[in-house]
Simulated assay, not measured.
Amino acid sequence: MIKFINTNKVYIIAEVSANHNGSIERAEAIIRAAAEAGADAVKLQTYTADTMTIPCDNEYFRIKGTLWEGKTLYDLYQEAHTPWEWQPRLKALANDLGMDCFSTPFDATAVDFLEKMNVPCHKVASFEVVDIPLLKKIASTGKPVIMSTGMASLAEIDEAVTTLREHGTSELALLKCTSAYPAPPEEANLRTIPHLAQAFNCVAGLSDHTLGSAVAVGAVAVGARIIEKHFTLARADGGPDSAFSMEPHEFKQMVQDIRTVEKALGTVCYDLTPKQKESKVFRRSLFVVKDMKAGEVFTEENVRSIRPGYGLHPRYLKILFGKKSSFPIKKGTPLRYNNLILDG
Rank of each mutant, 00 (worst) to 15 (best):
G38D: 11
G98W: 12
V281S: 12
G205V: 05
D271N: 15
M147T: 00
V203T: 11
I146K: 01
Y181T: 01
P308I: 05
K330F: 04
N339W: 14
L312V: 04
D257T: 10
P194K: 13
P308N: 03
A152D: 03
K275E: 15
N19I: 06
I2V: 15
L320G: 02
R307E: 09
L67Q: 14
L286D: 11
Y181G: 01
T149R: 02
K136Q: 14
N21F: 12
M117S: 02
G218Y: 14
E159K: 06
R336K: 11
T169H: 02
P334H: 13
G309C: 03
Q253S: 10
P308H: 02
V124Q: 02
K263A: 15
R315S: 07
A94L: 11
E15I: 12
I329M: 11
F113M: 06
L175V: 03
M52T: 05
I63K: 14
T299Y: 09
E25N: 11
T333W: 14
E25K: 13
M99D: 13
A80R: 12
T149V: 06
A155P: 05
R62T: 13
F106V: 01
R26D: 08
D131Y: 03
F244K: 11
V10C: 15
L44N: 04
G142W: 02
P105F: 00
D100T: 02
P334S: 12
D257A: 13
P184V: 08
L206D: 06
G70N: 11
I146D: 04
A243V: 14
P274S: 12
P144K: 08
K64T: 14
G238M: 10
I341V: 10
G212I: 06
Q276L: 09
F287T: 00
N8Y: 14
A125F: 00
F113W: 09
E262G: 07
P144L: 06
P88F: 08
F244R: 10
K71I: 03
Y337P: 00
S207A: 04
L93G: 03
S126E: 00
A236Q: 15
V268W: 13
F106P: 02
S305G: 09
A49H: 01
V119W: 01
S207M: 03
R235L: 13
A34P: 06
T109Y: 11
E85W: 12
A294F: 06
T48H: 03
L44A: 07
L97W: 12
L190H: 06
I146S: 01
V16C: 11
G322F: 02
S305L: 09
V129M: 00
F113I: 06
P182D: 02
K331H: 08
E36P: 04
K143D: 02
R62H: 12
I146Q: 05
L44W: 05
E128C: 00
Y270F: 13
A33S: 14
L73M: 11
G238T: 15
K71A: 06
R283A: 08
T178D: 00
N339V: 09
N6Q: 04
L93E: 11
Y74I: 01
L211N: 14
T7S: 13
G205H: 10
N201M: 13
D100P: 02
H122L: 01
D100R: 08
D96H: 12
